[in-house]
């Protein structure tokens, strides 16, 4: 196969992955919405809490499983798409923002699927599939660039080490933030009274709080490593390991923000709302770095290809 046919194959795979994620989205939406349906018969007249207890989850269980199967299929297709992109360019597929984005979406669903094995997280599939579709949609429409070789500054094995660590961290951070956002949403729902019927099956606030903390604590060392690997690479390429380039500065800000989050939890005992907001703030610094600094930044890190 020629390089350009690999590139076509990659695009085709990414489109198919988007199709499958869309199916996953509908399956998750169906699963979630189904629970709202009031059961038939006299229970309808009983109290709200009773009514929910008598909801029939058996049919939604099937939808949920199908949704997860779609998520896995989407992940595999996207994985193949990213690999094909790499083959078409003859290098790791991390040379411009389109490639960062599709790999980031892959890391994000990967993090979700791995976490799903360990925790009861299937309900997160709905926001996860929405985010992945948004990321892939922007990537294909706005960020797309033809497959091309790397500029000399990127030709280094540190690209593989630094960028893979950063992308995986990004995927897990995004997942932790999704959970923190779900926490805040459900919390405000509970402040107003009871959770809506569909949300009753979601885990308790305490579990969400703990889960987003576990995810952050899990990737914080990886993110630290990503920043340090970047510093080592910068020393090889530019002659200094730290130069307060905008990209570096924001990586540092993200690092400090998540360190503050961990401190706030472990040593000051922040939980719940305050912790969730801090988590979201830290996550938004990561996103800002990715979107704003890549596209409008003026540093030496502008490889977006835009």
């Amino acid at each position: 196969m020629t390089h350009s046919s690999w590139a076509y194959l990659s695009n085709y795979l990414v489109y198919s992955a988007m199709g499958v994620y869309t199916l996953a989205f509908f399956a998750h939406a169906y699963e979630t919405a189904w629970a709202v349906r009031a059961p038939q018969g006299e229970q309808v007249k009983t109290e709200g809490s009773l009514l929910v207890k008598t909801l029939d989850y058996q049919r939604t269980e099937r939808a949920g499983r199908i949704a997860t199967a779609f998520m896995i299929l989407g992940f595999l297709l996207l994985f193949a798409g990213v690999v094909a992109r790499g083959i078409s360019a003859g290098r790791v597929p991390w040379g411009n923002m389109y490639e960062f984005s599709i790999t980031g979406a892959l890391a994000f669903t990967g993090a979700y699927l791995v976490a799903l094995k360990k925790y009861d997280l299937r309900w997160l599939g709905l926001p996860v599939s929405i985010f992945v579709l948004l990321i892939l949609g922007t990537a294909i429409t706005v960020l797309y660039r033809p497959s091309a070789p790397l500029v000399p500054a990127l030709k280094s094995y540190w690209l593989v080490i630094h960028v893979s660590a950063a992308i995986i961290s990004g995927g897990v951070f995004l997942l932790a933030n999704t959970i923190a956002a779900a926490y805040l949403y459900l919390d405000s729902m509970e402040q107003r009274g009871e959770r809506s019927a569909w949300a009753k099956r979601l885990p308790s606030l305490e579990v969400l709080d703990q889960l987003s903390y576990r995810l952050v604590a899990f990737v914080f060392p990886l993110w630290t490593f990503a920043v340090m690997a970047g510093a080592i690479w910068a020393e090889h390429a530019w002659g200094r390991y730290w130069g307060w380039d905008p990209k570096e500065t924001w990586a540092f800000i993200t690092w400090v923000a998540y360190a503050a989050y961990l401190h706030a939890r472990v040593t000051v005992g922040w939980r719940g709302r305050k912790a969730a907001w801090l988590c979201l703030f830290a996550g938004s610094t990561f996103l800002f770095n990715y979107v704003y600094i890549n596209i409008w930044g003026t540093g030496r890190h502008t490889y977006s290809g835009l």
Partner: peptide
């Protein structure tokens, strides 16, 4: 601990103008 935490956050905030 509280001072350290505030200083840590302040360091992050203080580097923002340097990037913009």
């Amino acid at each position: 601990m509280r001072t350290a935490l505030i200083l840590l956050l302040l360091l992050g905030v203080a580097s923002i103008p340097g990037s913009l």
